[in-house]
C-alpha cells in the first residue's frame, strides 16, 4: 500500500476509534466516578454513561449522536515525505468515515447549509506542528461536539486581576456552563499568549491523559486546587445537582503581552473523544494511548 492510502486508512480508523472508544484515562475517570457516587440520581446518570460507552465499544458505533466537527492535530516530521497532500488526504478520510462509521454530517456552510459529508471550507481543521529532525507523522483525530463547544469561553482579563481574576473567570465560566455541555466535564485551560493562542492551548491541554498534571509544579497545584473547588459548585452529573461536576483540569501557560491576560477555557463533555497514531515514512503504524 502506498503511503497516502495508509495515511487515509489510519485517519478513518482514528475517527472511528475516537467516536466509538474513549481514551483509557477518560474511561477510567468515569468508572471511578460511578464507583464513588453515593446518590441515586448520580448513580443512574453515570451508569447510563458507562452503559453507553461500553455499548459503543462493543458494537463499534458512535457513543453520542453528535460526532462533532472534525479536526486533526498533526505533528509532521520535517523529513516525512507527505506534507502538502495531507489536507486532501484528511478530507477524503473524513468523507469516507462519515459514510462508513457513520458520522453525523456536521459541517454547515453559512449560505448553502449542511454539506452532508463533514467537509467544508477549512473543515476538517488542521492544527499544524512541524517537528525538526523527524521522519514521523503524528495524527490525532479530535471531533468536538457542539454542546460543549458552545459553553467554551475566552476571557481577556486585565493583568492587574492576576491569579485571582483567572480563578474567578474559570469558576464563573463553569457556573455559566451549568448543565448545558453534558457534565462531568474535562477542562482545558490556556493562559497567556494572545486571544487565539489561549484558546488553542486550552484545546491542546485536553489531549493530555486525564490524571496527569502540568510539569510546572505551580501550574500543577493550580490544576489540583481548581479541580477540588469546581466540584464544590455541585452542578453535578448532567447538571442534576449530584455527583462530580469536573473530572479533570488541564492548564497550559504561555508568555503574554504586558497589557493582556487572555484566558481560554475549552470544555469537553464526558465523552472526551480523541484518538491518535504515529506513522513513519515506511508506513509503519503505532497507535497512541491517551
Amino acid at each position: 500500500m502506498e503511503l497516502p492510502e495508509i495515511i487515509e486508512n489510519v485517519a478513518i480508523e482514528l475517527l472511528r476509534s475516537a467516536v466509538t472508544k474513549l481514551p483509557d484515562s477518560v474511561e477510567k475517570a468515569l468508572l471511578k466516578a460511578l464507583e464513588e457516587s453515593q446518590t441515586d440520581v448520580a448513580k443512574t446518570q453515570l451508569q447510563a454513561i458507562v452503559d453507553d460507552f461500553i455499548t459503543a465499544k462493543t458494537s463499534i458505533l458512535p457513543m453520542c449522536q453528535d460526532t462533532g466537527v472534525v479536526s486533526f492535530f498533526v505533528k509532521a516530521g520535517e523529513h516525512f515525505p507527505i506534507i502538502a497532500e495531507l489536507p486532501n488526504i484528511l478530507k477524503k478520510a473524513t468523507i469516507k468515515a462519515t459514510h462508513d462509521v457513520p458520522l453525523r454530517p456536521n459541517a454547515v456552510d453559512l449560505f448553502k447549509g449542511n454539506t452532508g459529508n463533514n467537509v467544508a471550507d477549512y473543515i476538517p481543521w488542521i492544527y499544524w506542528e512541524i517537528v525538526p529532525n523527524s521522519n514521523m507523522l503524528e495524527l490525532v483525530a479530535f471531533p468536538k461536539g457542539g454542546g460543549s463547544t458552545n459553553i467554551s469561553k475566552l476571557g481577556l482579563l486585565k493583568p492587574g486581576e492576576g491569579l485571582k481574576g483567572i480563578k474567578r473567570f474559570i469558576v464563573d465560566s463553569v457556573v455559566d456552563a451549568g448543565a448545558k455541555g453534558c457534565p462531568p466535564y474535562f477542562l482545558g485551560i490556556g493562559i497567556g499568549g494572545g486571544e487565539d493562542i489561549a484558546m488553542n492551548l486550552a484545546k491542546k491541554a485536553l489531549l493530555r491523559s486525564v490524571g496527569t498534571h502540568n510539569t510546572n509544579l505551580k501550574i500543577a497545584e493550580l490544576e489540583k486546587e481548581l479541580l477540588k473547588a469546581l466540584n464544590e459548585l455541585k452542578i453535578g452529573v448532567m447538571g442534576l445537582g449530584e455527583g462530580p461536576t469536573v473530572l479533570s483540569v488541564h492548564i497550559e501557560v504561555a508568555g503574554r503581552h504586558p497589557a493582556s491576560l487572555p484566558v481560554g477555557i475549552v470544555f469537553s463533555c464526558w465523552a472526551d473523544r480523541h484518538a491518535g497514531a504515529r506513522i513513519d515514512s515506511e508506513g509503519n503504524i503505532t497507535y497512541l494511548n491517551f
Binding site: D51, D52, M238
Partner: peptide, 29 residues
Amino acid sequence: KGGMGMRTTKACQEEVCVYGAFTGGAALL
C-alpha cells in the same frame, strides 16, 4: 438535556406538559 427556562416552565404549567431529561450523550441507550 440540560433543562429549559422559565418560559417553558410556564407553558408546561398552563398546557399540562412535562420536560424529561435524558442522559446527555447516551445515544446508543
